[in-house]
Computed example of a mutant assay.
Amino acid sequence: MKSQIIHKTLSILIAAVWLVNGLFCKVLNLVPRHEQIVARILGDEYARPLTIVIGISEIIMAVWILTSYKSKLNAISQMVVIATMNTMEFFLVPDLLLWGKLNAAFAVIFIALIFYNEFVLNKNLKLETE
Rank of each mutant, 00 (worst) to 15 (best):
K2E: 07
K2L: 12
S3M: 13
Q4C: 03
I5L: 11
I6E: 08
I6N: 01
I6A: 09
H7A: 11
K8L: 09
T9F: 11
T9W: 10
L10Q: 10
L10A: 10
L10W: 02
L10N: 10
S11G: 14
I12L: 12
L13T: 00
I14R: 02
I14H: 06
A15E: 08
A16L: 15
A16Y: 11
A16H: 01
A16Q: 06
V17K: 01
W18A: 05
W18E: 00
L19E: 03
L19A: 13
V20I: 14
N21K: 06
N21A: 06
N21P: 03
G22P: 05
F24Y: 12
F24R: 04
C25Q: 11
C25F: 12
K26L: 00
L28E: 10
N29G: 05
L30K: 10
V31D: 04
V31Q: 03
P32E: 05
H34P: 01
E35A: 00
E35K: 03
E35C: 00
Q36I: 01
I37L: 05
V38G: 04
V38H: 06
A39R: 01
A39I: 03
R40K: 11
L42K: 01
G43E: 04
G43V: 09
D44N: 08
D44S: 12
E45T: 12
Y46V: 06
Y46L: 11
R48T: 11
P49M: 01
P49W: 13
L50A: 01
L50C: 03
L50R: 00
G55I: 05
G55F: 00
I56F: 02
S57F: 14
S57C: 13
S57D: 02
S57M: 14
E58I: 09
I59G: 03
W64N: 09
I65T: 08
I65R: 06
L66Q: 03
L66I: 12
T67V: 13
T67C: 11
Y69T: 12
Y69F: 15
Y69Q: 12
K70P: 07
S71I: 15
S71K: 15
S71H: 14
K72I: 09
L73E: 15
N74M: 15
I76T: 07
I76A: 05
Q78V: 09
M79L: 05
M79W: 09
V80W: 01
V81G: 09
I82E: 06
A83Y: 02
T84H: 09
T84M: 14
M85I: 15
M85R: 00
M85Y: 07
M88D: 04
E89K: 09
E89Y: 14
E89F: 14
F91V: 04
L92Q: 08
L92P: 04
V93C: 13
P94Y: 07
L96R: 01
L97S: 01
L98P: 03
W99Y: 13
W99E: 06
G100I: 05
G100F: 13
K101D: 06
L102G: 02
N103W: 04
A104T: 00
F106G: 12
A107C: 10
A107N: 07
I109Y: 07
I109D: 00
I109C: 10
F110V: 02
A112N: 10
L113P: 02
F115M: 07
F115N: 11
Y116Q: 07
N117W: 03
N117T: 14
N117C: 11
E118Q: 14
E118D: 10
E118L: 09
E118N: 13
L121G: 10
N122P: 08
K123L: 08
K123I: 14
E128Y: 04
T129F: 00
